[in-house]
Amino acid sequence: MGLYIVRKVCLTVPLLMVISFLTFILNNLSPMDPAEVVLQAQGVPVITDELIAQTRAELGMDQPFLIRYFQWLMACLQLDFGDSYITGEPVWSLLGPAFLNTLKLTLVSIIVIIGLSIALGVICALKEGGLLDKSVRGVSFFLTAMPSYLLAGLMTWYFSVKLDLLPTSGMDSYRSYLLPVTVIAVSYVGIYFRIVRSSMLSNLNEDYVLYGRACGLPEKTITLHILRNSLQVAISVFGMAIPVLLGSTVVVESVFAWPGLGTLSVKSILSRDFPMIQAYVLILAVAFVLFNTFSDMMNAALNPKLRKDL
């Protein structure tokens, strides 16, 4: 297991380097000159060539490419992502709190998603073909076809406007979590419960279940055995779900004006605030890789077979 972890980490470091490099050149791919963007954002009326050259020097753009990359990388490692082109504040002072808010939303959602998917998956698998199984699957089919922003809109209209029970937007108390978490959970439970259900079903036909029954084990014990075996698939999927969720709360966040990364990134894109976009992409990609590596390790800890293939 120790060797596995070491090898896994050794693979992750170069990947992180490549990601940071790609994120860095992203900025340079833009059709607009960053110096020009800064000047426009600061509302400079007449942009002359000298002014552009001066700003380029201020931003350190006149240095060779690789040197700029390493300077930028070193700064990033110290959480210094530069200043926002628009407000002039350090990027991290805006991104940091937003990242925490998104993380909170994601963690609450993932707990709800895991709980609901396992519960629904197990019940539907045990009562396969029953009324509950059929109706849950039917509803999930309908809900996975529903755009999350439509569901969000309908729910705010009903619960916040018509019944006036919940806040429409913002993040003030635990009640602000209810609507966004429900919307996020609904779109993912439909997918994940089917995975739990199908892995339960495939385990139901295994020999050990038949053997357990033949030995006269109580149904409850057998169910527990099946559950333990079928959760292996579920754990790897759920491990993947955290990073996926982190990056895909954009739509829900902006509908509910959640002060998180999604809202911030859309705002930065609309105002072409490159340092913000760059930092956003870098942070999420790194989080994605780290969570993935972590979930791989967890899987390997649970299933020794997986430790071999790397």
């Binding site: 833009s30 894109i269 999420l284 990609a285 994605f288």
Partner: peptide, 22 residues
């Protein structure tokens, strides 16, 4: 492919829109 897939889908799209413009 590994590198491409290590950017979450939404983030990749947002990043490219950020660079190319809306």
């Amino acid at each position: 492919c590994d590198v491409m897939l290590s950017f979450p889908g939404y983030v990749m799209t947002l990043a490219l829109i950020g660079v190319l413009g809306v």
